[in-house]
Amino acid sequence: MNIKNFKPAIVYTIYIASTPEKVWEALTKDEFSRQYFSGQSVEVEQRIGGAFIMRTPDGALHISGEVIECEPPRKLTVTFNVNWPALVEKLGPTLVTYEIEPSGDVVKLTMLQSHDRDISDDILSGGRAGWPAILSGLKSLLETGHAPTIKMAPPERMLAALKELGIGTP
């Protein structure tokens, strides 16, 4: 897969009072992700070509992907494909990149969600709503030891747009 063909559609930056190593750990270890990522468990094989998986709290496979770039504790790029029937076939793969940079005495975390084609605003509305909630939770978790419960309503606008395209949604 040539990641040069992918352009960021959603970019979200947040500054965290922590270290790059701690932020990397929070992004790649399930004991952290369960607390800020809607209860989901992340599993990453930290090597290029390794598996990237997220499971819902009941253990079901929700996101499956592959590690594309892996430079701990600076940069992680993975394919981030929601496991819904026909989604990848219709939308192409989704790429998620986390960039971790020291900034003064804190850490700048930037999330980029990229695609190799134009994706409608209706479909992107899901990620635009979700990423700020997820990464606000990650920041709180690292700074206070506790992630507030941010339970999102289902992204109705995105789900309707996916359904329209014939993509299987829950």
Partner: peptide, 20 residues
Amino acid sequence: WPAVLSSMKTLLETGASLPM
């Protein structure tokens, strides 16, 4: 904005802002 608002969140949640 991301720097200012990240720091506002830190101040309100922990009592101290981001030093930078």
